[in-house]
Design a protein around this nucleic acid. Sequence first.
DNA 1: CATCTTATGTAAGATTTTTTACATAATATT
DNA 2: AATATTATGTAAAAAATCTTACATAAGATG
Lengths: 407, 407
Amino acid sequence: MPRSVDLAVLENAGRILSLIATGAASSRAELLQASGLSRVTVTQRLNALLACGLVRETEQTLPSGGRPTRMLAVNAAAGFMLVANIGETHIHLAAMDLTPAVIVERTLPFDVESGPESTLVQMAESFALLASEAEKSHAPLLGISLSLPTPVDFKRGRVVGPSVLPGWDEFDIIGRFHDRFGVPVYVENDVNLMTIYEYRRNFPAADDILFVKIGTGIGSGMIAGGRIFRGAQGAAGDIGHIQFPSPDAPLCRCGKFGCVEARAAGWAIARDLSARGFVAETARDVIDLVEQQKPEAIMLLRAAGRTIGEAVSDAVSIINPSLIIVGGTLARGGEFLLSGIRELVYQRCLPLATRELSIVLSGSREDSAIFGAAYLLLDDVFSPARIEALMQRFLQLKSEPRYLDAG
Amino acid sequence: MPRSVDLAVLENAGRILSLIATGAASSRAELLQASGLSRVTVTQRLNALLACGLVRETEQTLPSGGRPTRMLAVNAAAGFMLVANIGETHIHLAAMDLTPAVIVERTLPFDVESGPESTLVQMAESFALLASEAEKSHAPLLGISLSLPTPVDFKRGRVVGPSVLPGWDEFDIIGRFHDRFGVPVYVENDVNLMTIYEYRRNFPAADDILFVKIGTGIGSGMIAGGRIFRGAQGAAGDIGHIQFPSPDAPLCRCGKFGCVEARAAGWAIARDLSARGFVAETARDVIDLVEQQKPEAIMLLRAAGRTIGEAVSDAVSIINPSLIIVGGTLARGGEFLLSGIRELVYQRCLPLATRELSIVLSGSREDSAIFGAAYLLLDDVFSPARIEALMQRFLQLKSEPRYLDAG
DNA sequence: CATCTTATGTAAGATTTTTTACATAATATT
DNA sequence: AATATTATGTAAAAAATCTTACATAAGATG
């Protein structure tokens, strides 16, 4: 039975909530350390958060020699988010709790030619349906986060430059959703979101990560010192269009010759397989042929690994990561792809840069971009700067009499 | 005449001092904003800092429509630092004030073969001399900061991996100086320090910088989101050993074939000039020949620019900087060098990444590494985490009666 | 020069936070 | 089961900080 909520204390509890939600602290002792507040103050505020259900004690404890430390977590049902991943053929939408985990989801067919206007209207309708479902069990909507398969200027939330989504350049996506739902809206490139997902979910201890997505196209995302690194225009990580001149340099989708993508991306391998009489158009077709053990497909995938390895070794020399994660559809080609990357990186880079470098396959087959989108949103909504607005909204809910118990 | 110093208040004034020293705030209004404290508290603490001479009001004011805003700055004479840049032939040592500006300096001849043991003893002797001079006018020694021409693991302050300094690998540099001088000691790679210098002194508004040093060797440093980016082992920015395979790939100092450095660094151009009958050994020799308008030297420098441009364009694709600064001895070759870099970058990179990209020559001919070393030290000594220790030392000085006046 | 505007200082009381000192809780160890 | 150990809670006094309200400062403007 929840204790009564001291609204005045709750209002100041944002810093505590932020520390718990962002993973910076997950026990009372860590809160003391991280917040710099006294135990009395932390206890007081934490109690307010516990009483109103924003935070809960987990079943988990840490052995300490004496009384074990009780772990804390944000109550997964204290709110929900709407997220979506716009792919080249489908849009995957979901309402997620604060774990983050999917509450309800939905997939829409998508034609890249349909333009932002009608697409966003359609998405908003689906979001409204998902929200009405999620609301029943998961308190207020905290925000909306979108994944797009294009370069995005994250600060402005806009597609920048020509891309696979014609007509989306500079379109005001945030405005549309913000006007309708009245919550913060985030837009980010899918590769960056997959990178965030890998970092937060699978490798939280690795502070310098290069995530390479090899699918129909090739792109990469970076975690630098624990934060996603976007560069000046949000165009960082563009290893797909590093060029190697050669007499037979193939023409790339970008209009230049000899890009990594034109040599080793899903569409390039499909092109080469088609030239050899196979039926292949997408990255998935390529992987199907590899899984059928077609020698030509395996050979081309291995060669692609070495080509990608050239670009990755450049990236290793420049950013010196401690971990490289290879994901995307072609990553299902496993060692056939990875061995070439490893070969080139260990051959080309200085021992100093490779001696503690791991190169691994991404484990996840699910749609990691929507989870990345969720983490991105959570980190920002629960950031010290934004938490105040969130607490205000929560206090309005709490101040309705039915939430208050007598002491 | 200084007011009396309230020691209790001074003890809490660290956050204020940190904001002023790191440049985060330089007026009372900015201090209010940045610290989140009330005007009363800020006034009280600032007065303590002013009274004890750590901070001063500058002559500068900002017009505001009403009473102008008075600017604040750390008193340049409130302390001094010892810095040194170890080059391949000389060691440049200096005592610097908090501007930072040189108070006294000294240069020692240096033989890379002499090893760390005797070199550090020699440096310590010179530091002691410089310190006794600087002490007369500039209160306490705040720290020591060193620049080395090798990869450095900054966290541990050690040279990592084989380098141009045989015997220095893993040598405990910090320990030597800390034992003798009892202050924080920092060790960093020279290119990173030159990068910090350019950022802090010349381009404080550019948050994503790639600094390329082209001298006897080739290296680069990065400012990412306003902070120096070191990578996992401090090996980031190693564009000198990006490789381009070709039939005539030259052998590099690192033992591999086709590195950028083996094609375009000072020593490589000198090698090629020697093969053509010129007398050239160092980057300086190369520049002398260029300045004498020798066509072969100019031709080779232009070619080097294009080669370096290939590596730089890879870096641009990967990190998407907003500014590229070209420095080092060969940068004195000006447009002969720069045009090739520009040509390749604009040819190879996506318009999105280049449309707001500037590529400029470094303006400074002085030894920028020692200034970078000074900024690095200042930022850390005055960081919120470290400031407490500094204040403690200062309080000890202040608590001597002669510093205290009656109210 | 009078007036407007913004910057800055200060006293006093209200509020928040910390410190201190003591009490209770939950587990491992003996 | 008793004991040791670390986690956690709480009351009361002390200290720090904030709010409020008023006063002064310094330049711009007319």
